[in-house]
Write a protein that binds this DNA or RNA. Structure first.
Lengths: 108, 108
DNA sequence: TTCGTTATTAGCTTGTTAGCTAACCTCCAA
DNA sequence: TTGGAGGTTAGCTAACAAGCTAATAACGAA
């Protein structure tokens, strides 16, 4: 389910975007993440499931805790590629190692 | 005026993302846009309304036709800003003037 | 005016999503 | 092996979103 639409659907919810921003500072446990919001832990858990399903976060288990971390490249590649197609004049994707061939540069 | 969430919600639908891509080539009438899809014209009309509500497209009327065009900066600013916050190492926003930033809309 | 074209709005149906509470699972310590 | 802490899953409700057809509005030409 790691298609482009799953990423954009995941980004459509403000809570999920906030979670991604919060994870920018490093991995966090599910409880720590939930602690930053007023909605219930199960609701946060499902948001995390959506983000994970989109490939935007990864999980690591330690004892009975689950730590979530950002998968930056997934976000950058998927959204960045779209931006590059629709408004290439305004956004520049930084080169990545093994960048997928959707590069519209002349040398190919 | 359209907030950040309205933009990401608009982008969540693949038909709407395709419309934005199609408009990359220049303005198109509603009928021309609808002609590229198999879904009904009223459905396309509503998609256009969503995109317009998010500020991602603009309309121009000529006789009984309505031409739609991309508002590139709206997409670049809104999405690009988010990308810059969450994965600044991977994306570079090209310089703009008057780029203010503040949207912490979340259920937190 | 009347007609055809272009496009939107209204109203309905169906499926999805976000929230909740309650129940369940897993791990560890004692 | 029991208990508590950390998380998720199940089941429900309410709201939203996307599709359709039918009806309506706006415009130009005859």
């Amino acid at each position: 389910m790691a298609d482009e639409t799953s990423v954009f659907k995941a980004l459509a919810d403000p809570t999920r975007r906030q979670i991604l921003q919060d994870l920018r500072g490093g991995e966090m446990s599910a409880g720590d993440i939930a602690g930053r919001f007023t909605i219930s832990a199960p609701s946060i858990s499902r948001h995390l499931g959506v983000l994970k399903g989109a490939g935007l976060i990864a999980e690591r288990r330690d004892a009975n805790r689950i730590y979530y971390s950002l998968v930056e490249e997934r976000l950058a590649v998927c959204v960045g590629r779209f931006l590059s197609v629709v408004c290439p004049e305004q956004v520049v994707m930084r080169r990545r190692r093994g960048a997928a061939a959707s590069d519209r540069s002349s040398t190919r």
